[in-house]
Design a protein around this nucleic acid. Structure first.
Lengths: 208, 208
DNA sequence: GTCTATAGATCGATAGAC
DNA sequence: GTCTATCGATCTATAGAC
């Protein structure tokens, strides 16, 4: 059946992409893992590049409307606390991704982290063309929390925060292993995010 | 001549690796760019994986002794200001890499950023086995600046900071282009680092 | 829609002459 | 140490039978 094959491919692809990266995951590995024929990927998705986008689209289409809703409801509070409050309110939408797929949140952020450094700007363009309005909305809200920070300074800080996010997520498997071994801490993806929110909040807000 | 060929390969490889990533840069591209024979890479370096390590080793061997010296001389000051002062004192050693090679600092940090997410832990292991003492020294110094932060909390914050660093550097070309176009700001690698130091300092130090 | 079979390209690595 | 030639593996993508 068409639907099931397509879904099997998406499920297999996202798992393998998150684990090994995009370049190192071949169509053969995906179709073997999904237990479907090699040719079906190109039949259903046209190309590997398009498959990568479709894998991420499944998540973005659930996440971005929720982000829009959160941003619409958000009451601006100035300073580091306001930023922290804003980011905390984005955590719940992130967590809903695990209802769509087991470990969905973790898979999504890993895919995002890999995509940003591996796909040579393709992912960045895809996000900005498909979900640019939500991104702009988020940036505007952050600006409202930090009206005293120059526009260009804020540009840099937001990219540093994005770096913390995608890198931590791309490396989250290694990081959680170390944390669990060294600190005997129960670590899941939410714990990592909750550690990260204060870090990026105080980094973005800067000296007080 | 042996020496020149080897150096040509290293120079070509680091440029291409930084631009396109490790996986997407083939031996053929490297040898064509370096204007040497295809077989010479394997003659001089044995394998592509070893070539990647040697490219980074050239930089680490210059950088790490300077880090050791800086850490030895550093006078601990507590809080965010101490962290900021520590990181600022590491900037000069970073800048010396541009004396070794044109744009050396930029190339090195891009290679580092790419290596951390692309090489599936190989680079991380190489760094820790070859330069683990310096890394441990750096971590211990940061701990002395922030004695009140839990060990596991500091573990997380340092990795978030590392994420800001390697991601920003891996994306530095795109970021500097945007910054130059949008804010008419003269941007070089040092400017990016100087923007980043406060961000990671206040992120690591946390709320006061 | 699903399959087999294979085209067509590219890769890292090496053998062997010079 | 440098070259040509090539091996063997792997890849994405597609043609064509069912």
């Amino acid at each position: 059946m068409a639907k099931e094959t397509k879904t099997s491919i998406l499920n297999a692809a996202e798992t393998l992409f998150a684990q090994q990266g995009y370049a190192h995951t071949s169509m053969r590995t995906i179709t073997t893992y999904a237990d479907v024929n090699l040719a079906s990927v190109n039949y259903h998705f046209g190309s590997k590049k398009n498959l990568i986008q479709q894998v991420l689209k499944r998540y973005f289409d659930i996440l971005m409307p929720q982000f829009d809703e959160v941003l619409h409801q958000f009451e601006v509070e100035k300073g580091a606390k306001g930023i922290e409050s804003l980011f905390l309110s984005l955590v719940s939408p992130m967590m809903t991704l695990s209802q769509v797929r087991p470990n969905g949140t973790e898979l999504f952020v890993q895919l995002l982290g890999r995509g940003y450094t591996e796909t040579q700007g393709h992912l960045r363009r895809f996000i900005m063309t498909s979900y640019g309005a939500t991104v702009a909305n988020l940036i505007a809200t952050i600006r409202r929390c930090l009206p005293d920070v120059n526009e260009d300074e804020l540009f840099w800080r937001m990219h540093f925060a994005l770096g913390s996010f995608v890198f931590s997520m791309a490396s989250s498997e290694a990081l959680t292993e170390i944390a669990q071994a060294d600190f005997d801490e129960q670590v899941d993806i939410k714990a990592v995010i909750m550690h990260m929110v204060p870090f990026v909040s105080y980094g973005i807000a800067g000296p007080k």
